[in-house]
Design a protein around this nucleic acid. Structure first.
Length: 445
RNA sequence: GCGCCGGUCGUAUAGUGGCAAUUACACGAGACUGUAAAUCUUGCGGCUUCGGCCUUCGGGGGUUCGAGUCCCUCCCGGCGCA
Protein backbone atom coordinates (compact mmCIF):
# COMPACT_ATOMS: atom_id res chain seq x y z
CA UNK A 1 0.00 0.00 0.00
CA UNK A 2 1.20 3.47 -0.84
CA UNK A 3 -0.19 6.86 0.02
CA UNK A 4 0.46 10.11 -1.73
CA UNK A 5 -0.88 13.54 -0.87
CA UNK A 6 -1.99 15.56 -3.88
CA UNK A 7 -3.24 18.75 -2.36
CA UNK A 8 -3.70 20.26 1.07
CA UNK A 9 -6.31 22.49 2.57
CA UNK A 10 -4.62 25.79 3.22
CA UNK A 11 -4.11 26.48 6.90
CA UNK A 12 -5.82 23.27 7.91
CA UNK A 13 -5.03 19.61 8.35
CA UNK A 14 -7.17 18.45 5.44
CA UNK A 15 -5.76 16.97 2.28
CA UNK A 16 -6.64 15.07 -0.87
CA UNK A 17 -4.53 12.13 -1.89
CA UNK A 18 -4.31 8.69 -3.43
CA UNK A 19 -3.87 5.30 -1.80
CA UNK A 20 -2.56 2.51 -3.96
CA UNK A 21 -3.50 -1.03 -3.05
CA UNK A 22 -3.08 -4.38 -4.80
CA UNK A 23 -6.72 -4.08 -5.86
CA UNK A 24 -6.45 -0.59 -7.25
CA UNK A 25 -6.35 2.96 -6.10
CA UNK A 26 -8.47 4.93 -3.70
CA UNK A 27 -8.83 8.63 -4.17
CA UNK A 28 -8.92 10.17 -0.73
CA UNK A 29 -10.73 11.41 1.19
CA UNK A 30 -12.95 8.42 0.55
CA UNK A 31 -15.96 6.81 2.13
CA UNK A 32 -15.58 3.09 2.75
CA UNK A 33 -18.80 1.11 2.40
CA UNK A 34 -19.34 -1.42 5.16
CA UNK A 35 -19.92 -5.05 4.27
CA UNK A 36 -19.52 -6.68 7.65
CA UNK A 37 -20.14 -10.28 6.73
CA UNK A 38 -18.54 -10.14 3.33
CA UNK A 39 -21.50 -8.48 1.68
CA UNK A 40 -22.82 -4.98 1.65
CA UNK A 41 -26.27 -5.73 2.97
CA UNK A 42 -28.96 -5.89 0.31
CA UNK A 43 -26.79 -4.75 -2.60
CA UNK A 44 -24.49 -6.67 -4.89
CA UNK A 45 -20.90 -5.63 -5.67
CA UNK A 46 -21.81 -4.23 -9.05
CA UNK A 47 -24.42 -1.99 -7.47
CA UNK A 48 -21.91 -0.92 -4.83
CA UNK A 49 -19.43 -0.08 -7.58
CA UNK A 50 -22.02 1.70 -9.69
CA UNK A 51 -23.00 3.77 -6.68
CA UNK A 52 -19.44 5.06 -6.75
CA UNK A 53 -17.83 3.13 -3.91
CA UNK A 54 -14.08 2.59 -4.21
CA UNK A 55 -13.43 0.41 -1.20
CA UNK A 56 -15.33 -1.84 1.20
CA UNK A 57 -14.73 -2.97 4.77
CA UNK A 58 -15.61 -6.35 6.28
CA UNK A 59 -15.36 -7.56 9.85
CA UNK A 60 -12.94 -9.99 11.40
CA UNK A 61 -15.19 -11.13 14.22
CA UNK A 62 -18.21 -11.84 12.07
CA UNK A 63 -16.29 -13.65 9.35
CA UNK A 64 -14.33 -15.63 11.91
CA UNK A 65 -17.57 -16.90 13.42
CA UNK A 66 -19.18 -17.47 10.05
CA UNK A 67 -18.09 -18.96 7.73
CA UNK A 68 -14.67 -19.01 9.46
CA UNK A 69 -11.48 -17.34 8.28
CA UNK A 70 -10.05 -20.62 6.97
CA UNK A 71 -13.16 -21.03 4.85
CA UNK A 72 -12.75 -17.51 3.50
CA UNK A 73 -9.14 -18.29 2.70
CA UNK A 74 -10.18 -21.46 0.86
CA UNK A 75 -12.66 -19.43 -1.12
CA UNK A 76 -9.75 -17.33 -2.30
CA UNK A 77 -9.87 -14.55 0.25
CA UNK A 78 -12.37 -11.81 0.98
CA UNK A 79 -12.27 -10.12 -2.41
CA UNK A 80 -12.62 -13.27 -4.43
CA UNK A 81 -15.21 -14.76 -2.13
CA UNK A 82 -17.53 -11.80 -2.34
CA UNK A 83 -16.67 -10.89 -5.92
CA UNK A 84 -15.47 -7.41 -5.00
CA UNK A 85 -12.75 -6.32 -7.41
CA UNK A 86 -11.64 -3.17 -5.62
CA UNK A 87 -9.65 -2.32 -2.54
CA UNK A 88 -10.80 -3.90 0.71
CA UNK A 89 -10.30 -3.60 4.43
CA UNK A 90 -11.17 -5.60 7.51
CA UNK A 91 -11.86 -4.27 10.95
CA UNK A 92 -10.13 -6.12 13.74
CA UNK A 93 -13.04 -7.00 16.00
CA UNK A 94 -12.05 -4.18 18.33
CA UNK A 95 -15.40 -2.49 17.94
CA UNK A 96 -17.14 -5.65 19.07
CA UNK A 97 -15.21 -5.44 22.33
CA UNK A 98 -17.35 -2.37 22.88
CA UNK A 99 -20.62 -3.13 21.09
CA UNK A 100 -20.89 -6.61 22.60
CA UNK A 101 -19.24 -5.60 25.85
CA UNK A 102 -19.72 -2.29 27.67
CA UNK A 103 -22.38 -1.16 25.21
CA UNK A 104 -24.30 -4.42 25.10
CA UNK A 105 -28.04 -3.92 25.50
CA UNK A 106 -27.55 -0.35 26.65
CA UNK A 107 -28.72 1.43 23.57
CA UNK A 108 -25.41 3.24 23.28
CA UNK A 109 -23.28 3.25 20.18
CA UNK A 110 -20.60 5.17 18.32
CA UNK A 111 -21.99 8.61 18.87
CA UNK A 112 -23.67 9.62 22.07
CA UNK A 113 -25.99 12.59 22.35
CA UNK A 114 -24.67 14.83 25.09
CA UNK A 115 -28.28 15.85 25.74
CA UNK A 116 -28.31 12.83 27.99
CA UNK A 117 -25.90 13.95 30.72
CA UNK A 118 -26.16 10.67 32.60
CA UNK A 119 -24.05 9.24 29.81
CA UNK A 120 -21.18 11.41 30.91
CA UNK A 121 -21.06 10.99 34.65
CA UNK A 122 -17.49 11.52 35.80
CA UNK A 123 -17.15 8.35 37.84
CA UNK A 124 -17.03 5.01 36.21
CA UNK A 125 -20.37 3.33 36.55
CA UNK A 126 -19.46 -0.15 37.59
CA UNK A 127 -21.73 -2.56 35.82
CA UNK A 128 -19.19 -5.27 35.16
CA UNK A 129 -21.73 -7.92 36.08
CA UNK A 130 -24.24 -6.64 33.52
CA UNK A 131 -24.93 -9.18 30.78
CA UNK A 132 -22.47 -8.85 27.93
CA UNK A 133 -21.16 -11.00 25.13
CA UNK A 134 -17.61 -9.65 25.25
CA UNK A 135 -15.43 -9.65 28.34
CA UNK A 136 -11.93 -8.28 28.50
CA UNK A 137 -9.49 -10.83 29.86
CA UNK A 138 -5.79 -10.93 30.68
CA UNK A 139 -4.40 -10.70 27.18
CA UNK A 140 -7.44 -10.69 24.96
CA UNK A 141 -11.21 -10.71 24.89
CA UNK A 142 -13.60 -13.56 25.35
CA UNK A 143 -16.62 -13.39 23.11
CA UNK A 144 -19.81 -15.35 23.47
CA UNK A 145 -21.04 -15.87 19.95
CA UNK A 146 -24.31 -14.09 19.27
CA UNK A 147 -25.01 -16.88 16.80
CA UNK A 148 -24.75 -20.02 18.90
CA UNK A 149 -23.43 -19.04 22.33
CA UNK A 150 -20.05 -20.67 21.80
CA UNK A 151 -17.15 -18.92 23.51
CA UNK A 152 -14.13 -17.60 21.60
CA UNK A 153 -11.03 -15.96 22.95
CA UNK A 154 -9.65 -13.34 20.61
CA UNK A 155 -6.17 -11.99 21.21
CA UNK A 156 -4.39 -9.37 19.11
CA UNK A 157 -2.39 -12.21 17.54
CA UNK A 158 -5.57 -14.11 16.72
CA UNK A 159 -7.20 -11.07 15.18
CA UNK A 160 -4.19 -10.48 12.93
CA UNK A 161 -4.02 -14.14 11.95
CA UNK A 162 -7.68 -14.09 11.04
CA UNK A 163 -7.24 -10.91 9.06
CA UNK A 164 -4.31 -12.36 7.14
CA UNK A 165 -6.49 -15.32 6.27
CA UNK A 166 -9.29 -13.03 5.15
CA UNK A 167 -6.74 -11.27 2.98
CA UNK A 168 -8.00 -7.71 2.70
CA UNK A 169 -5.69 -4.97 1.45
CA UNK A 170 -5.79 -2.98 4.64
CA UNK A 171 -6.30 -4.39 8.10
CA UNK A 172 -6.54 -2.98 11.61
CA UNK A 173 -4.80 -3.64 14.90
CA UNK A 174 -6.94 -5.16 17.63
CA UNK A 175 -8.08 -2.43 20.00
CA UNK A 176 -10.61 -1.60 22.66
CA UNK A 177 -13.21 0.92 21.63
CA UNK A 178 -14.30 2.76 24.77
CA UNK A 179 -17.39 4.72 25.61
CA UNK A 180 -17.06 8.47 26.27
CA UNK A 181 -18.91 7.89 29.51
CA UNK A 182 -15.89 6.13 30.99
CA UNK A 183 -13.85 8.14 33.46
CA UNK A 184 -10.24 9.21 32.97
CA UNK A 185 -8.85 6.35 34.98
CA UNK A 186 -10.61 3.76 32.89
CA UNK A 187 -9.74 5.51 29.63
CA UNK A 188 -6.10 5.49 30.66
CA UNK A 189 -6.21 1.85 31.61
CA UNK A 190 -7.99 0.92 28.38
CA UNK A 191 -5.54 2.98 26.37
CA UNK A 192 -2.59 1.13 27.81
CA UNK A 193 -4.29 -2.09 26.90
CA UNK A 194 -4.95 -0.85 23.36
CA UNK A 195 -1.31 0.15 23.03
CA UNK A 196 -0.07 -3.20 24.29
CA UNK A 197 -2.44 -4.89 21.86
CA UNK A 198 -1.23 -2.62 19.05
CA UNK A 199 2.34 -3.71 19.68
CA UNK A 200 1.33 -7.35 19.64
CA UNK A 201 -0.72 -6.81 16.50
CA UNK A 202 2.28 -5.27 14.80
CA UNK A 203 4.54 -8.09 15.96
CA UNK A 204 2.18 -10.75 14.72
CA UNK A 205 1.70 -8.97 11.42
CA UNK A 206 5.44 -8.79 10.91
CA UNK A 207 5.90 -12.42 11.90
CA UNK A 208 3.25 -13.55 9.41
CA UNK A 209 4.88 -11.50 6.69
CA UNK A 210 8.22 -13.17 7.25
CA UNK A 211 6.67 -16.63 7.44
CA UNK A 212 4.78 -16.02 4.28
CA UNK A 213 7.89 -14.93 2.46
CA UNK A 214 9.75 -17.97 3.68
CA UNK A 215 7.05 -20.33 2.58
CA UNK A 216 7.51 -22.55 -0.40
CA UNK A 217 5.01 -20.94 -2.70
CA UNK A 218 6.50 -17.54 -2.29
CA UNK A 219 10.03 -18.83 -2.58
CA UNK A 220 9.68 -19.81 -6.20
CA UNK A 221 11.56 -17.44 -8.34
CA UNK A 222 12.27 -15.02 -5.58
CA UNK A 223 15.33 -16.49 -3.94
CA UNK A 224 17.06 -13.16 -4.22
CA UNK A 225 14.58 -11.66 -1.84
CA UNK A 226 14.51 -14.58 0.51
CA UNK A 227 18.23 -14.62 0.95
CA UNK A 228 17.68 -11.58 3.07
CA UNK A 229 15.45 -13.35 5.53
CA UNK A 230 17.12 -13.82 8.84
CA UNK A 231 19.94 -11.54 7.85
CA UNK A 232 20.65 -7.95 8.66
CA UNK A 233 17.96 -5.59 9.84
CA UNK A 234 18.41 -3.43 6.82
CA UNK A 235 18.09 -6.48 4.63
CA UNK A 236 14.85 -7.42 6.29
CA UNK A 237 13.59 -3.95 5.91
CA UNK A 238 14.36 -3.90 2.26
CA UNK A 239 12.46 -7.05 1.37
CA UNK A 240 9.64 -6.13 3.63
CA UNK A 241 9.02 -3.09 1.52
CA UNK A 242 6.10 -4.88 0.05
CA UNK A 243 4.73 -4.99 -3.46
CA UNK A 244 8.18 -5.05 -5.01
CA UNK A 245 8.29 -5.35 -8.68
CA UNK A 246 9.99 -8.18 -10.51
CA UNK A 247 11.00 -5.80 -13.22
CA UNK A 248 8.03 -6.57 -15.45
CA UNK A 249 5.79 -4.30 -13.44
CA UNK A 250 4.08 -7.16 -11.67
CA UNK A 251 3.61 -7.42 -7.98
CA UNK A 252 5.57 -10.27 -6.48
CA UNK A 253 3.67 -10.55 -3.31
CA UNK A 254 1.25 -8.28 -1.58
CA UNK A 255 0.69 -8.09 2.11
CA UNK A 256 -2.06 -6.34 3.89
CA UNK A 257 -1.22 -2.89 5.15
CA UNK A 258 -1.68 -2.64 8.90
CA UNK A 259 -3.35 0.35 10.50
CA UNK A 260 -2.77 1.10 14.18
CA UNK A 261 -5.67 2.51 16.16
CA UNK A 262 -5.60 5.62 18.29
CA UNK A 263 -7.90 5.72 21.30
CA UNK A 264 -8.07 7.89 24.42
CA UNK A 265 -11.73 8.81 24.80
CA UNK A 266 -12.44 12.49 25.23
CA UNK A 267 -9.21 13.25 27.04
CA UNK A 268 -6.77 15.50 25.23
CA UNK A 269 -3.73 14.12 27.06
CA UNK A 270 -4.65 10.56 26.26
CA UNK A 271 -5.58 11.21 22.64
CA UNK A 272 -2.30 12.99 21.95
CA UNK A 273 -0.30 10.43 23.82
CA UNK A 274 -2.00 7.66 21.90
CA UNK A 275 -1.33 9.31 18.55
CA UNK A 276 2.31 9.67 19.56
CA UNK A 277 2.71 6.11 20.82
CA UNK A 278 0.93 4.50 17.89
CA UNK A 279 2.74 6.50 15.25
CA UNK A 280 6.16 5.79 16.77
CA UNK A 281 5.51 2.16 17.55
CA UNK A 282 7.79 -0.22 15.67
CA UNK A 283 8.82 -3.84 15.51
CA UNK A 284 12.13 -4.54 13.77
CA UNK A 285 11.88 -1.30 11.93
CA UNK A 286 8.30 -1.98 10.87
CA UNK A 287 5.74 0.66 11.71
CA UNK A 288 2.04 0.97 11.08
CA UNK A 289 1.13 1.77 7.48
CA UNK A 290 -1.75 3.99 8.48
CA UNK A 291 -3.92 4.92 11.42
CA UNK A 292 -7.41 4.41 12.61
CA UNK A 293 -9.03 6.90 14.94
CA UNK A 294 -11.34 4.94 17.16
CA UNK A 295 -13.61 5.36 20.10
CA UNK A 296 -17.17 6.21 20.74
CA UNK A 297 -17.75 9.96 20.83
CA UNK A 298 -20.05 12.53 22.17
CA UNK A 299 -20.91 14.42 19.00
CA UNK A 300 -19.56 17.66 20.43
CA UNK A 301 -16.20 16.05 21.19
CA UNK A 302 -15.54 14.45 17.87
CA UNK A 303 -14.07 17.42 16.07
CA UNK A 304 -11.61 18.36 18.81
CA UNK A 305 -10.57 14.75 19.37
CA UNK A 306 -9.84 14.27 15.67
CA UNK A 307 -7.80 17.47 15.52
CA UNK A 308 -5.75 16.56 18.59
CA UNK A 309 -4.87 13.26 16.99
CA UNK A 310 -4.18 14.41 13.46
CA UNK A 311 -1.89 17.17 14.64
CA UNK A 312 0.35 14.46 16.07
CA UNK A 313 0.08 11.68 13.47
CA UNK A 314 2.68 11.72 10.68
CA UNK A 315 1.10 13.37 7.68
CA UNK A 316 2.53 11.00 5.11
CA UNK A 317 0.33 8.09 6.21
CA UNK A 318 -3.43 7.74 5.78
CA UNK A 319 -5.88 8.23 8.64
CA UNK A 320 -9.17 6.46 8.93
CA UNK A 321 -11.91 7.81 11.19
CA UNK A 322 -13.58 4.59 12.23
CA UNK A 323 -17.32 4.22 12.01
CA UNK A 324 -18.14 7.82 11.28
CA UNK A 325 -20.37 8.91 8.59
CA UNK A 326 -23.07 11.57 8.90
CA UNK A 327 -22.61 14.36 6.33
CA UNK A 328 -21.66 16.97 8.96
CA UNK A 329 -19.11 14.53 10.39
CA UNK A 330 -17.55 13.99 6.98
CA UNK A 331 -16.94 17.70 6.44
CA UNK A 332 -15.57 17.97 9.96
CA UNK A 333 -13.28 14.97 9.58
CA UNK A 334 -11.93 15.91 6.17
CA UNK A 335 -11.22 19.43 7.32
CA UNK A 336 -9.36 17.95 10.27
CA UNK A 337 -7.18 15.72 8.12
CA UNK A 338 -9.06 12.45 7.84
CA UNK A 339 -8.53 10.43 4.66
CA UNK A 340 -10.91 7.51 5.11
CA UNK A 341 -14.29 7.00 6.73
CA UNK A 342 -16.50 4.00 7.03
CA UNK A 343 -20.01 3.85 8.39
CA UNK A 344 -23.00 1.53 8.39
CA UNK A 345 -25.46 4.40 8.16
CA UNK A 346 -26.05 4.55 4.41
CA UNK A 347 -27.05 0.90 4.29
CA UNK A 348 -28.68 0.60 7.68
CA UNK A 349 -30.73 3.74 7.24
CA UNK A 350 -31.56 2.68 3.72
CA UNK A 351 -32.84 -0.71 4.81
CA UNK A 352 -34.86 0.95 7.53
CA UNK A 353 -36.50 3.44 5.21
CA UNK A 354 -34.51 6.61 5.92
CA UNK A 355 -33.08 8.25 2.84
CA UNK A 356 -30.49 10.99 2.46
CA UNK A 357 -31.33 14.03 0.42
CA UNK A 358 -29.50 17.33 0.01
CA UNK A 359 -32.28 18.88 2.08
CA UNK A 360 -31.89 16.41 4.94
CA UNK A 361 -33.06 12.89 5.63
CA UNK A 362 -36.56 11.69 4.83
CA UNK A 363 -38.61 8.75 6.06
CA UNK A 364 -39.84 7.17 2.89
CA UNK A 365 -42.70 5.38 4.65
CA UNK A 366 -44.29 8.64 5.80
CA UNK A 367 -47.75 9.31 4.44
CA UNK A 368 -46.59 12.26 2.37
CA UNK A 369 -44.60 10.04 -0.02
CA UNK A 370 -47.28 7.48 -0.80
CA UNK A 371 -48.29 9.25 -3.98
CA UNK A 372 -45.13 11.25 -4.61
CA UNK A 373 -44.22 10.66 -8.24
CA UNK A 374 -40.85 12.39 -8.06
CA UNK A 375 -37.57 10.51 -7.66
CA UNK A 376 -35.84 10.96 -4.29
CA UNK A 377 -33.72 13.67 -5.89
CA UNK A 378 -34.39 14.88 -9.38
CA UNK A 379 -30.75 15.60 -10.17
CA UNK A 380 -29.31 12.46 -8.56
CA UNK A 381 -27.40 10.17 -10.90
CA UNK A 382 -27.95 6.97 -8.96
CA UNK A 383 -29.78 3.97 -10.36
CA UNK A 384 -32.65 4.42 -7.93
CA UNK A 385 -33.27 8.05 -8.74
CA UNK A 386 -32.95 7.51 -12.47
CA UNK A 387 -35.60 4.81 -12.50
CA UNK A 388 -38.01 4.98 -9.57
CA UNK A 389 -40.41 7.31 -7.81
CA UNK A 390 -40.76 7.92 -4.11
CA UNK A 391 -44.28 6.53 -4.35
CA UNK A 392 -42.90 3.23 -5.58
CA UNK A 393 -40.23 3.15 -2.89
CA UNK A 394 -42.88 3.91 -0.27
CA UNK A 395 -44.94 1.06 -1.66
CA UNK A 396 -41.99 -1.36 -1.55
CA UNK A 397 -41.31 -0.46 2.07
CA UNK A 398 -44.94 -0.70 3.11
CA UNK A 399 -45.14 -4.01 1.33
CA UNK A 400 -41.93 -5.18 3.02
CA UNK A 401 -40.43 -5.96 -0.36
CA UNK A 402 -36.67 -6.57 -0.33
CA UNK A 403 -36.12 -4.31 -3.31
CA UNK A 404 -37.04 -1.31 -1.16
CA UNK A 405 -34.01 -1.77 1.07
CA UNK A 406 -31.83 -2.35 -1.95
CA UNK A 407 -32.93 0.75 -3.84
CA UNK A 408 -32.73 2.95 -0.75
CA UNK A 409 -29.26 1.58 0.06
CA UNK A 410 -28.06 2.24 -3.47
CA UNK A 411 -29.19 5.84 -3.21
CA UNK A 412 -27.74 6.34 0.26
CA UNK A 413 -24.38 4.82 -0.71
CA UNK A 414 -24.32 6.98 -3.80
CA UNK A 415 -25.26 10.03 -1.77
CA UNK A 416 -22.57 9.64 0.88
CA UNK A 417 -19.79 8.28 -1.33
CA UNK A 418 -20.32 11.07 -3.80
CA UNK A 419 -20.58 13.69 -1.09
CA UNK A 420 -17.05 12.73 -0.06
CA UNK A 421 -15.95 12.74 -3.69
CA UNK A 422 -17.35 16.23 -4.11
CA UNK A 423 -15.59 17.36 -0.96
CA UNK A 424 -12.37 15.92 -2.37
CA UNK A 425 -12.92 17.81 -5.59
CA UNK A 426 -13.53 21.00 -3.63
CA UNK A 427 -10.13 20.56 -2.01
CA UNK A 428 -8.53 20.11 -5.41
CA UNK A 429 -10.44 23.12 -6.75
CA UNK A 430 -9.61 25.22 -3.73
CA UNK A 431 -13.21 25.91 -2.71
CA UNK A 432 -13.73 23.60 0.23
CA UNK A 433 -15.21 26.25 2.52
CA UNK A 434 -17.70 27.42 -0.08
CA UNK A 435 -18.84 23.91 -0.82
CA UNK A 436 -19.11 23.05 2.85
CA UNK A 437 -21.23 26.10 3.65
CA UNK A 438 -23.40 25.62 0.61
CA UNK A 439 -24.06 21.97 1.37
CA UNK A 440 -24.62 22.27 5.10
CA UNK A 441 -26.91 25.25 4.70
CA UNK A 442 -29.27 23.29 2.54
CA UNK A 443 -28.85 20.01 4.38
CA UNK A 444 -29.68 21.30 7.83
CA UNK A 445 -32.20 23.98 7.03
C1' G B 1 -91.41 -20.57 12.25
C1' C B 2 -88.35 -23.32 15.95
C1' G B 3 -83.44 -24.44 17.88
C1' C B 4 -78.24 -23.56 18.41
C1' C B 5 -73.99 -20.35 17.80
C1' G B 6 -72.21 -15.57 17.12
C1' G B 7 -72.04 -9.70 16.72
C1' U B 8 -65.61 -6.17 21.03
C1' C B 9 -60.86 -0.05 18.51
C1' G B 10 -59.56 -0.44 10.32
C1' U B 11 -59.10 -6.17 10.14
C1' A B 12 -58.59 -10.68 12.88
C1' U B 13 -58.80 -11.89 17.92
C1' A B 14 -58.74 -12.15 23.87
C1' G B 15 -62.07 -11.20 27.53
C1' U B 16 -67.79 -15.24 31.69
C1' G B 17 -69.21 -9.32 37.35
C1' G B 18 -64.20 -4.35 38.91
C1' C B 19 -62.22 -2.87 31.95
C1' A B 20 -60.72 2.42 28.31
C1' A B 21 -60.71 -3.39 27.51
C1' U B 22 -55.67 -8.63 25.32
C1' U B 23 -52.77 -9.96 21.17
C1' A B 24 -51.40 -9.69 16.04
C1' C B 25 -51.61 -7.18 11.60
C1' A B 26 -52.62 -2.56 9.39
C1' C B 27 -52.00 2.63 10.24
C1' G B 28 -49.21 7.18 12.42
C1' A B 29 -44.48 9.12 14.22
C1' G B 30 -39.49 8.51 15.67
C1' A B 31 -34.59 6.24 16.28
C1' C B 32 -30.26 4.08 13.97
C1' U B 33 -22.59 6.45 13.23
C1' G B 34 -15.45 0.47 12.91
C1' U B 35 -23.71 -3.86 11.68
C1' A B 36 -26.32 -8.88 17.88
C1' A B 37 -30.12 -4.37 13.16
C1' A B 38 -34.54 -5.79 6.10
C1' U B 39 -34.19 -3.79 13.24
C1' C B 40 -35.94 -1.27 17.50
C1' U B 41 -39.03 2.40 20.20
C1' U B 42 -43.54 4.73 20.53
C1' G B 43 -48.72 6.31 19.50
C1' C B 44 -53.35 4.32 17.89
C1' G B 45 -61.90 6.63 21.41
C1' G B 46 -61.92 12.12 22.96
C1' C B 47 -60.21 15.94 26.27
C1' U B 48 -56.45 16.88 30.07
C1' U B 49 -53.57 21.91 34.62
C1' C B 50 -51.10 14.42 33.52
C1' G B 51 -54.26 13.86 38.99
C1' G B 52 -57.76 12.68 36.19
C1' C B 53 -62.46 13.64 33.37
C1' C B 54 -65.89 12.10 29.55
C1' U B 55 -67.68 8.48 25.75
C1' U B 56 -67.23 3.25 24.32
C1' C B 57 -67.79 -3.93 23.28
C1' G B 58 -74.98 -4.49 17.43
C1' G B 59 -79.86 -1.31 19.43
C1' G B 60 -83.12 -0.64 23.62
C1' G B 61 -84.46 -1.92 28.54
C1' G B 62 -83.34 -4.40 33.25
C1' U B 63 -80.55 -6.83 37.62
C1' U B 64 -76.18 -5.01 40.50
C1' C B 65 -72.35 -0.62 44.55
C1' G B 66 -70.38 -1.99 39.70
C1' A B 67 -72.20 -5.00 33.17
C1' G B 68 -68.33 -6.28 27.21
C1' U B 69 -69.50 -10.11 30.75
C1' C B 70 -75.99 -11.89 33.97
C1' C B 71 -81.54 -11.28 32.46
C1' C B 72 -85.47 -9.53 28.83
C1' U B 73 -86.38 -7.74 24.04
C1' C B 74 -85.33 -6.12 19.14
C1' C B 75 -81.91 -5.99 14.86
C1' C B 76 -78.06 -8.47 11.96
C1' G B 77 -75.04 -12.93 10.44
C1' G B 78 -73.94 -18.36 10.29
C1' C B 79 -75.53 -23.37 10.92
C1' G B 80 -79.36 -27.13 11.81
C1' C B 81 -84.61 -28.73 11.80
C1' A B 82 -89.25 -27.78 9.63
Amino acid sequence: MKFKIEKRLEGKLGRAGIIETPHGIIETPAFVVVGTKGTVKSVNPEQVRDAGAQVILANTYHLYLQPGDEAVKKMGGLNKMMNWPGPSMTDSGGFQVFSLGAAYKKGISKVIQITNPSMLIPERFDDSDAPRLAKIGQDGVSFTSHLDGSVHYITPEKSIQIQHNLGADMIFAFDECTSPSEDFKYQEEALERTHAWAKRSLQEHYKLKVESLKSEENYKGHSDILQNVGMSESGKRSFLEEERSDGKGETLRSFPALFGIVQGGREEVLRKKSAQVISEMEVDGQKFDGFGIGGSFAKEDMSTAVKWVNEVLPEEKPRHLLGIGEPEDLFMGIEAGVDLFDCVLPTRLGRNGTIYTKAGKIHIMNTEFRLDLEPIERDCECYTCKNYTKAYLAHLFHGKEMLGGTLASIHNIHFIVNLVKKIRQSILDGNFDEYKNEFLNEYSK
